[in-house]
């Protein structure tokens, strides 16, 4: 477009606006709806650092988060564990107290990791965007494993409905941390006109493009597994004992 033509709409806009603009104040921009959600997430992490699982109340949105977490497990968990544990996980999901106990346990475990991590909120995603992605990822993965039968589809649909029920006006808040674990993710859900934290996770799942850091950014060393497990490193086979690497009696060697 030449400069002459470009100038025409601008001139028109100015002339149309002039009388109205002169007499009205420009209304303030509506508040960013993500800010209260981010504040809730930030407060939650601070509370966790001090009080761990004692920060957990009991909200009905926990069930929605639990449904969301179950979908996430289908979308990215090990198929061996899914086969072994899905039934009992669904039974857990039915039990409100079990859901709350798990939230407390996860919060306690996260508290230990987040103390001194210096996390701050850096990004938000709307659950209305995230849940459909999760649903698709869970279905695709179950299909890949040959597990997407009618029953599984109904379960996934039920979980999606439950997750949507409590989280659809909420946000998935990304918090970056200066120190390990470097990031944490908090679900802020709307509850009686304010935001509460309905759940959290310490790594961004695969279906949202996440990857778990396994080495320290500073030293390159492996980050410890969350159970603090140790390794057997023996090299000597001792008569009368079972070697951790070779379960063979020495006589047969």
């Amino acid at each position: 477009m030449s400069p002459r033509f470009r100038a025409v709409p601008i001139a028109l806009a100015v002339s149309m606006c002039a009388p109205a603009c002169a007499s009205r104040r420009v209304p303030p921009a509506p508040p960013d709806p993500t800010v209260p959600a981010q504040r809730a997430a930030q407060s939650w992490v601070h509370c966790l650092e001090q009080n761990g699982g004692a920060c957990v109340s009991n909200y009905q949105q926990f069930a929605s988060w639990d449904a969301y977490a179950l979908l996430g497990w289908l979308a990215s968990g090990s198929p061996t564990s899914i086969l072994a544990g899905l039934r009992q996980e669904l039974q857990h999901h039915r039990d409100e107290r079990s859901v709350q106990r798990r939230m407390i346990a996860i919060s306690d475990a996260a508290a230990a990791e987040l103390r001194g991590a210096e996390c701050r909120s850096v990004d938000v995603m709307e659950f209305t965007d995230v849940i459909p992605k999760l649903e698709e990822a869970a279905k695709a993965r179950m299909r890949y494993f040959g597990l997407l039968n009618g029953q599984m589809e109904t379960i996934i649909q039920g979980l999606v409905a439950e997750a949507t029920d409590g989280l659809n006006t909420g946000y998935f808040v990304t918090m970056e941390c200066v120190n390990e674990p470097y990031a944490t993710y908090v679900a802020a859900a709307e509850h009686e006109n304010h935001y509460i934290v309905a759940g959290m996770m310490l790594e961004l799942p695969d279906y949202l493009g996440g990857s778990r850091p396994i080495r320290s950014r500073d030293t390159g060393e492996l980050l410890p597994m969350r159970t603090g497990v140790s390794k057997a490193t023996e090299t000597s086979a001792v008569e009368g004992t079972v070697h951790p690497w070779i379960n063979i009696v020495v006589e047969e060697f």
Partner: peptide, 30 residues
């Protein structure tokens, strides 16, 4: 919804016997 999910879960992978009330051990994963 939880009721629906529970009803389905009790029949999930139900062709093989469960080794425990909580679920199957790794040995019997159908």
């Amino acid at each position: 919804l939880k009721t629906i999910i529970f009803a389905l879960s009790t029949g999930l992978f139900s062709a093989a016997p469960s080794s425990s009330p909580a679920g199957k051990g790794f040995e019997q994963l159908e």
